[in-house]
Nucleic acid binder design. Structure first.
Length: 888
RNA sequence: GGGCGGGUAGCUCAGUUGGGAGAGCAUCGGCCUUACAAGCCGAGGGUCACAGGUUCAAGCCCUGUUCCGCCUACCA
């Protein structure tokens, strides 16, 4: 008897902590830097250091961990590089809030003190997310954990900046950028979320000088008119060809501004006249450049009107709009207000409405970098999976605009540029210069802006591996094998890593990009704090265990489809974890300590069958994982474990284990049970690391951690030998006999404890043989007292009949049979059969099907037809008999 | 405006070269059968969004319509 008795149900909490500590202590996740083995590497999408784990991380981490653990089991030298991102604006916001609660402000502290405070904050809270990743079971190489603000990574940032500047790919200039008045910084175009809002279209008359007549423009932003420096019409617009006036008066400001002609103006919109505000609209800015118009900044960095706005100075931009509209109305210049749907940009960090503002910023010239990034995916050097995302990737890169990389915040990599206050020379350098390169002055002031956080994360795949040094790590693991990420950062991060990787490493940063979906709530809505539909992964883990949670995520992670998460689903997979646990519990009750090899002598049919099935499952799971079909892999194992291994195999071998079946070889059967469960544990390990490790250690014939074992593979000729089609066919016959009998029991409401006798009528020698040989399996699983095989003869009267291919089974129900009920049951069967038969008959009566369909298809259909006819015949006979019995 | 994805059982979804419509959960009926009631056995339930087309054959391929979701864009 068995060596270890497991508890009746699996208790995850204690197990998880114990094994994670063990794995870390033994350094089982550590990558080796010598390149003798096949290598496999992934860099983690670094979570924000301020962040807490959400569902998106949970899915992302689970998928990466499945890949990493799978690859280790396959024998690869795996590096999973972990780390966090300094998340400039987000982190600064958090710390500023903290300061505000202490009634202070960053400007009160000063830059240096403030940055110090952020570092302190990071040290204190920055490990929260890392600990949460560990609770997910993430098998990262924690010794190598990186942070985007680490010294090494900061050096990489400076190096990249200086080189790009010297190559002319970074420049500084005064352009319209997206300004967040609340975060008080410029943002890249990508960092602006556009939302449709119900706004108004204000029609305003700009009078000609000394006239009450004038031109009418339409605008959604009347407050910007204070900064208008022209009015524009299309040169092809007939309405304005013979225009006498070439100026209008800007209302409220009482300033004469020119009427210019520019083809940009859309003649079909409104009156075809457009007001031009070069300092507050990107298009107007371009037009302003073309026509050498002055730019007047009327809205300041704080969102309030500047002194250029005259009497509106100091008003907030929203208040100013109201005031302007009111004044225009009073002066009779407001023609009308129309409701107008349009989209408005919001800051992606704080949701404040973005202000397009003229300001001096740093930019990356993106086009040349983008071209290489496009080519690498076109040529297949990097594969995007699912490939539908490649189109999105191309579309963005092909239309890319220059990337504004400077941010007016303090937390981040300060731009390595200095201005000489004496001669105004701009110096860009890796190291802090001591004197001006032009005039030798020592009066140098460093650029106060910091870089966009995504600038440093774009370097992540190589900066984490020690670049610009030529490290062994880079040699081993760059390019990385795959990047696993959500589509929401395809442009932010993936495309930019491609650009930087190709430029600085001269090679793609990853061979595959696996783009997974978003996790939504059970109604398919995006989870958000404001909606209150957020499910906290840690709560799920507390309640259901990490393994159940991970398996749920994997099982629902179908390519191209969002994951809808609900506790109920996790609960379902917790049952699966428990099922596995109990299968192991059962096995361990029988297995002895000494069990450690597969014995192939005297195998029973269930043994041959389950081994055959095991080896096809190994193939399917392997293929699915190689192709990132996580849900396929998960459901394949799930069905195998539950419905084949537990429902059929373990039940079928009970007669042998309990030595009721004298013909069985108990030793061999136990070895098969051992081997199949052994391989199941390994295959499930990437999905459910904790429970598999726990069982593994109680399992005979195993030593050390399950992480150190090998994934079952089919390279051996053994696999070929063990795949056994005959056994699968034979087992199917047994299953059908048993199911037929069970069906009768169920339909006739016969208590399972009641033992019955049954007879099988058949002339099929294969069925006869199998039923005879494996009688006790059938007796056991169908709860029969006896089963006799006979040639077709007079059917027993008090019996219910089940018809399968090639045989009728009569279950003796003497004294309990209800002929009416039995007739009803058979009629129902017959009806189903008739339906099937009619479609198949139609096919066979169709000449073109016979002539045009491939032979094997026709053959199959004919065979099916014959089988159905035979079945129909038997059912009819049985029905007739039953009816006649009923009437007697 | 452009692009992408989706509409299959009550719910969530699978369905890999076109050839017998599936799973889980939920529902109904029967069971504490010595691994598991977080379980076992059985059953019911679908015009595969709609309309055409190609084909011997369409959930799958083509065209159109419609509904939903997402991404993207400087029409004031």
């Amino acid at each position: 008897m068995g060596s270890v008795i497991l508890d009746k149900s699996y208790q995850p909490d204690e197990v998880e902590k114990r094994w994670y500590d063990f794995w870390e202590k033994e350094q089982l996740f550590a990558a080796s830097e010598n390149k003798t083995q096949k290598t496999y590497s992934i860099v983690i999408p670094p979570p924000n250091v301020t962040g807490v784990l959400h569902m998106g991380h949970a899915l992302n981490i689970t998928l990466q961990d499945i890949l990493c653990r799978y690859r280790r089991l396959k024998g690869d030298n795996v590096l999973w590089m972990p780390g966090t991102d300094h998340a400039g604006i987000a982190t600064q916001n958090v710390v500023e809030k903290m300061l505000a609660s202490k009634n202070t402000h960053r400007h009160q502290l000063g830059r240096e003190k403030f940055i110090e405070a952020v570092w302190q904050w990071k040290e204190k809270y920055g490990s929260a997310i890392i600990n949460q990743l560990k609770r997910m079971g993430a098998s990262c190489d924690w010794q190598r954990e990186r942070f985007t603000m680490d010294e090494g990574l900061s050096l990489a940032v400076r190096k990249v900046f200086v080189q790009l500047y010297n190559e002319g790919l970074i420049y500084r200039g005064k352009y319209i950028i997206n300004w967040c008045p609340r975060c008080h910084t410029a943002l890249a175009d990508l960092e602006v979320d556009h939302d449709e809002v119900n706004g108004n279209l204000y029609h305003i008359r700009y009078p000609y000088p000394n006239s009450t007549k004038g031109l009418i423009i339409a605008t959604t932003r009347p407050e910007t008119m204070l900064g208008d420096t022209a009015m524009a019409v299309n040169p092809n617009d007939n309405r304005y060809v013979g225009l006498k006036n070439n100026t209008v008066i800007l209302p409220l400001m009482n300033k004469e501004i020119p009427i210019i002609k520019d083809e940009y103006v859309d003649m079909s919109f409104g009156t075809g006249a457009l007001k031009i505000t070069p300092a507050h609209d990107p298009n107007d800015f371009e037009i302003g450049l073309r026509h050498k118009l002055p730019s007047i900044v009327v809205i300041g960095d704080d969102g309030k009107m500047t002194s250029e706005a005259g009497k509106y100075q100091g008003l907030d931009r929203t208040e100013c709009r109201k005031a302007v509209v009111k004044d225009l109305e009073e002066q009779g210049l407001l023609v009308k207000i129309e409701p107008h749907m349009h989209s408005i940009g919001h800051c992606y960090r704080c949701k404040t409405i973005i202000e397009p503002n003229l300001s001096e910023q740093w930019f990356v010239k993106a086009k040349p970098l983008a071209e290489k990034a496009i080519a690498a995916v076109k040529s297949g050097e990097t594969k995007i999976i699912p490939d539908t995302w490649a189109n999105t990737y191309f579309d963005w890169l092909e239309n890319i605009r220059d990337w504004c990389i400077s941010r007016q915040i303090w937390w981040g990599h300060q731009i390595p540029a200095w201005t000489c206050t004496t001669c105004n020379e701009l110096i860009v350098s890796m190291d802090t210069p001591t004197s001006c390169t032009a005039c030798d002055s020592t009066q140098l002031v460093q650029e106060s802006d910091v870089l966009d956080t995504w600038f440093s994360s774009a370097l992540w795949p190589f900066s984490t591996m020690g670049w610009p040094e030529k490290t062994p790590l880079l040699k081993c693991f760059y390019p990385t094998s795959v990047l696993v990420t959500g589509f929401d950062i395809l442009f932010f991060w993936v495309a930019r890593m491609m650009m930087m990787g190709l430029h600085f490493m001269d090679d793609v940063p990853f061979k595959d990009v696996y783009v997974h979906a978003l996790v939504r709530d059970e109604d398919g809505k995006k989870m958000s704090k404001s909606k209150g539909n957020v499910i906290d992964p840690i709560t799920i883990i507390d309640n259901y265990g990490t393994d159940a949670f991970r398996f749920t995520l994997a099982a629902f992670a179908a390519q191209g489809r969002d994951v809808k998460m609900s506790e109920k689903r996790v609960e379902g997979y917790r049952h699966f974890v428990n099922k596995l646990w109990n299968a192991a519990r059962f096995a361990l009750m029988h297995l002895g300590e000494e069990q450690k090899e597969l014995i192939l002598k005297d195998l029973s049919l269930p043994d041959k069958w389950i081994l055959s099935r095991l080896y096809s499952i190994i193939d399917s799971v392997t293929d699915a994982l190689e192709e990132y079909r996580f849900n396929d892999a998960a459901s394949t194992i799930y069905n195998f474990v539950w419905h084949e291994f537990c429902d059929w195999y373990l039940e079928a071998i009970k007669p042998i284990l309990y030595e009721k079946d004298k013909k069985g070889c108990r030793t061999s059967t136990m070895s098969v049970m051992w081997r199949v469960l052994h391989d199941i544990l390994i295959m499930l390990h990437p999905f459910m690391p904790f429970v598999t490790e726990e069982i593994w250690h109680k399992f005979p014939g195993t030593e050390d951690s399950i992480l150190k074992t090998a994934f079952p593979a089919n390279e051996e000729s053994k696999a070929k030998k063990l795949k056994n089609k005959d056994a699968e066919v034979e087992m199917e016959i047994i299953e059908k006999v048993i199911t037929g009998i069970r069906n009768i029991r169920g339909e006739m409401n016969i208590n399972p404890s009641l033992s019955l006798t049954a007879a099988i009528h058949t002339i099929d020698s294969q069925i006869t043989e199998i039923v005879d040989r494996y009688e006790n399996i059938i007796l056991d699983l169908a709860k029969l007292e006896s089963l006799t095989v006979t040639d077709p003869q007079e059917r027993p009267k008090f019996a219910a009949a089940a018809v399968i291919d090639g045989a009728s089974i009569f279950v003796s129900l003497e004294g309990i049979i209800d002929f009416e009920k039995e007739a009803g049951r058979l009629e129902k069967e017959l009806e189903k059969l008739d339906n099937e038969l009619s479609t198949i008959t139609k096919k066979l009566n169709n000449d073109s099907f016979i002539t045009k369909a491939p032979d094997d298809v026709v053959k199959k259909v004919k065979k099916k037809y014959l089988a159905l006819i035979e079945k129909q015949d038997k059912l009819k006979t049985n029905l007739d008999k039953t009816r006649s019995f009923a009437n007697n």
